[in-house]
Amino acid sequence: MFGPIQNTFALALLDPQRPVPGALVSHTASPPAKRFAVYRNNVVVGLVNALAKRFPAVQRIVGEEFFAAMARVFVIENPPRSPVLMFYGDDFLDFIASFEPAAELPYLADVARLEAARTRAYHAAEAKPLDPAILQSLDKAALGEIRIVPHPSAEIVRSKFPIVTIWAMNAGEIELAPIEDWSGEDALVVRPALEVEVRALPAGGAAFLSALFAGAPLAAAAGTALGESADFDLAANLAGLIGAGAVTKVFLANLQKDEMP
């Protein structure tokens, strides 16, 4: 009966303390320890590589050796639950946040959060960003009650650390240098066409966009943003939001108004 053997085989893959399953043989040595190790190795190295592919900035920050060691612990404790590996590691950032040896890099989990959002944006559904011309035709009296439909790829990542700068330095966007200003940065991640873009948000921007994305009308979202930062600039944020392609539709109550009637 293969069922119990398959179970033993599966459990031994991720647990090096377990013996080589007794049902396994080879024409040379018995038990075929080195041969079974090929499978253990394929599983762990393959999944560690999967995480390295999704979190290249995290890997660059800590170095390959540390990353592999950290990812290996994650893989064994949190193996994938789906054969669709592109989203494997959505919870890697929570693991990093509680991973003792990485505690000296408190920003690392937030960098991972940003990279995870980039992958989701990369694979998100297509949608055409709003044509700014449509804004001219809106009823001025009702502007405050306007709501938006966010682009399917759009996500806000907030951090107490300068994660956009840190990410950019480790994604080859800007030169690696000591970071003088360790104030927090919030990011907008969006893929309006085929390239994922990361934008640092200005004061109050994250609160404004988060509120709009959650369905709040324009006036309320702007109020929330002002409540968070007196420097919130509504015009610049509206221009940024639309210019980034993070909105696909604006609508009033139940009347949808998109780029073309």
């Binding site: 190795n41 900035a57 590996l85 990279e115 640092a200 200005p202 921007g205 980034a244």
Partner: peptide, 26 residues
């Protein structure tokens, strides 16, 4: 322009792809 919307950082686009699958061992 660090804190401004005007910057669009892309990074290596392929790096956002996440893991591929393979039918090969390692």
């Amino acid at each position: 322009m660090d804190k401004c919307y005007g910057i669009s950082l892309k990074g290596q686009n392929d790096c956002a792809a996440g893991a591929g699958t393979t039918c090969a061992g390692t």
